[in-house]
Amino acid sequence: MAELSFPLPDLGEGLIEATILEWLVAEGDQVERNQPLVEVETTKSAVELPSPQTGTVVRVHGGAGDVIKVGDPLIVFGVPDDTAGIVGTVPQEQAPKRRVRLNAVLDDD
């Protein structure tokens, strides 16, 4: 299991921090990509942050009312070590299947 940290992104143009209103997931939860993670409030608006990826929530940083600076860790995901990269899927090893049979008379010397 590898850990991937997701820092608080800049939610507007040049915002420097956000206040956590409510966590919508808890440590240990399995989350899907784009699932709402947390509701935060900035000086511009209150927004729900979608999950950037699928994984298990290992840690959340801060609770309701806490201020998180842009770029500081917000949440840590656990992902399996053999998860593919940002694109593609891990190929599954399968027993080879064949339809073609070889049929040859070898006239080797």
Binding site: K97, R98, R99, V100, L102, A104, L106
Partner: peptide, 14 residues
């Protein structure tokens, strides 16, 4: 794939 490679082998053997 496996079958295409086997076909290639068969062509050479024949």
């Amino acid at each position: 794939g496996i079958d295409r490679i086997l076909f290639g082998i068969q062509r050479v053997l024949e």
